[in-house]
Design a protein around this nucleic acid. Structure first.
Lengths: 178, 178
DNA sequence: GTCTATAATTTGATAGAC
DNA sequence: GTCTATCAAATTATAGAC
């Protein structure tokens, strides 16, 4: 365990609790058992520290995604899409919890998130067309909204893992996938 | 237009842009064309100022809700539930935009929001049971998640009003309401 | 009700030693 | 890599005059 990692861990914890803006570098140093100076030597600024955490988080997420989304056919793709939010969150719960908290107000978090999502979302319209849905565009928008809601509700503990899983099953039924 | 109202307007605008924590009372005074001192004379503290805005917002929302939700039957209730997020946001767009931004990190915002939602949400399970749905509990959780997603996506301009309306129509079809 | 002036802390960040 | 000491600016809030 390096001091650098201690700082990253402390930051993730504190940013999740109170947000980046409300977390002082002093409180991070205290939590990480280091000096404030070391934070700036390692990461340059408080924003640099946040960006390092986010960058790493999305790199891991992309790895997960490419492993998870081995394309087979339209039906499989839809099933995977429904399963994705729970799987992804479980692969890095603490990171996604922080992202949930800071996304609406933090431009850095938003930028990385949008870059991450765009490619997968664009494909969904084709899938719905392929499956013969009327108005594939709105079907896509709605499913994206649901997927987005599932990970956010799960990671913020508004629903349990069991509820999230039940929802995934129900959705697959509604889309005639099982 | 009183100075008090100017302060409230300026605060709503700035809290929406950057969040409560990142907005200084100095910037509020500047935007409202007043002195900082007056903010504290009127509202006691920065938190008091936020609470005043939120309290008023939810008072208006409750008024809207009681007017909107005249109970008729289970089908009507479901239709109204689906229409609610768009209607509610349109009745006070700027307020809900702020709420969207600050909810995940702000305990005051969360407290008022939960108090506001709980009564309406509890009724939904009965409705799904009455309509003969299997597993009314999960159906309720899913619909709440969708409703929540609609207002948040709409108010943060991730979807347009047209998209939101199309989603509402699509949902009513999926629930066999039209 | 409203302002100017100011106090008391906190904050992000740097210098420089080891 | 890591720490102590320190700075300049910003922040919330108050005192007191009009």
């Amino acid at each position: 365990m390096s001091k650098k990692q201690d700082i990253l861990d402390a930051t993730l914890k504190l940013f999740t609790e109170n947000g980046a803006r409300a977390t002082s570098t002093k409180s991070i140093a205290l939590q990480a058992n280091t000096s404030e100076a070391l934070i700036f030597k390692h990461f340059g600024s408080k924003d640099g520290l946040l960006e390092e955490i986010i960058k790493t988080g999305y790199q891991d997420a992309v790895k997960f995604l490419t492993q998870f989304f081995v394309y087979q056919n339209a039906q499989e793709y839809l099933i995977k899409t429904i399963d994705l939010p729970i799987m992804l969150v479980n692969s890095n719960f603490d990171f996604w919890r922080m992202q949930y908290k800071i996304l609406p107000l933090n431009p850095i978090a938003q930028q990385y998130h949008n870059n991450f999502l765009n490619p997968s979302e664009n494909k969904l319209t084709d899938i719905f067309n392929e499956l013969g849905y009327q108005n594939a565009q709105i079907e896509r928008d709605l499913l994206i909204l649901v997927i987005d809601g599932i990970w956010k509700n799960y990671v913020s503990e508004k629903i349990t893992l069991e509820q999230a899983n039940s929802m995934a099953v129900l959705l697959k039924k509604k889309y005639n996938l099982i």
